[in-house]
Simulated scan of single mutants.
Amino acid sequence: MTRVRMVWLALFTAVAVVVAYQTVHSATERSQFIASADVPTVAPGEDVLAGVAVLPLRMRAGDYRRAAFGESWTDDNDAPGGHNGCDTRNDILDRDLVEKTYISISRCPTAVATGVLHDPYTSLTIPFTRGNQTGAAVQIEHIVPLAYAWDQGARFWTDALRVRFANDPANLVAVQGQANQDKGDKEPAVWMPPNAAFHCQYAIQFIAVMRGYGLSLDAPSAPALQRAAGTCPYG
């Protein structure tokens, strides 16, 4: 490892340790979900990345475990109707789908049985039917991927904070299953939604989550997010 890389690694670790002690549970410190009908606006000359630490590279930790963010969805979330017996996945499906029908399963009395997704990532209209295979057409996507958050500081968080992050509606959106798979854990410098009309909202939500949770951004992704935010209308 070169001396320069060691210096940046030490800096990254210092930033991440600070992150671990930040108070991020307050709703005022976390982004609120932006409804698809409400396109964000930015002021001319606004620095959308103000307050977000930027490090030269994405420092891959190598020890990411999905289980570190909780084994499954919980009912402890702030989605509309949360704490209702339905887990986060069911709450987000209910929030993001239209033309819905419902069934009662386990402790969730209002699980979406069928519905329609107007997918923001691809602009496709996708029918949803609950089932092991058919349900995969619509998946719940973390706007800031869990593995990316892990690399950028979340590995220093408490287990409870990681579970909260994984179930935060501000970081979740229902999308086409294939688009979710194509994205994986890629950062904005590598992947943006195929639907360019959604780049503004994607960037604003990505930045809001990073800022709200005190996560650092890899430098190559900064201009990608700024370009995307540049497509937002002026407020």
Rank of each mutant, 00 (worst) to 15 (best):
R3S: 13
M6W: 03
M6Y: 10
W8V: 04
A10G: 15
L11W: 12
A14G: 03
A16Q: 13
V18E: 06
V19I: 03
Q22M: 11
S26D: 11
A27W: 06
Q32P: 08
F33E: 06
I34L: 12
I34F: 13
P40G: 01
G45R: 13
V48G: 07
A50N: 09
A50Q: 10
L57I: 14
R60G: 14
Y64P: 13
R65Y: 00
A67T: 13
S72A: 13
D76Q: 12
N77M: 05
D78T: 11
P80K: 01
G82S: 05
T88N: 11
D91V: 01
L93N: 10
R95I: 06
K100I: 05
K100S: 11
T101G: 14
C108L: 11
T114K: 15
P127Q: 15
T129S: 01
R130A: 01
V138M: 11
V144N: 01
L146P: 00
L146D: 01
Y148R: 09
A149T: 04
D168M: 04
A170D: 03
Q176N: 15
N180M: 09
Q181L: 06
G184R: 06
D185V: 09
E187P: 07
E187N: 06
A189Q: 01
V190K: 08
W191A: 10
P193A: 04
A197V: 04
F198H: 07
Y202N: 13
A203Y: 02
Q205V: 01
F206K: 10
I207L: 12
G214Y: 01
P220N: 09
S221K: 04
A224S: 02
L225N: 08
T231Q: 13
C232M: 10
Y234I: 14
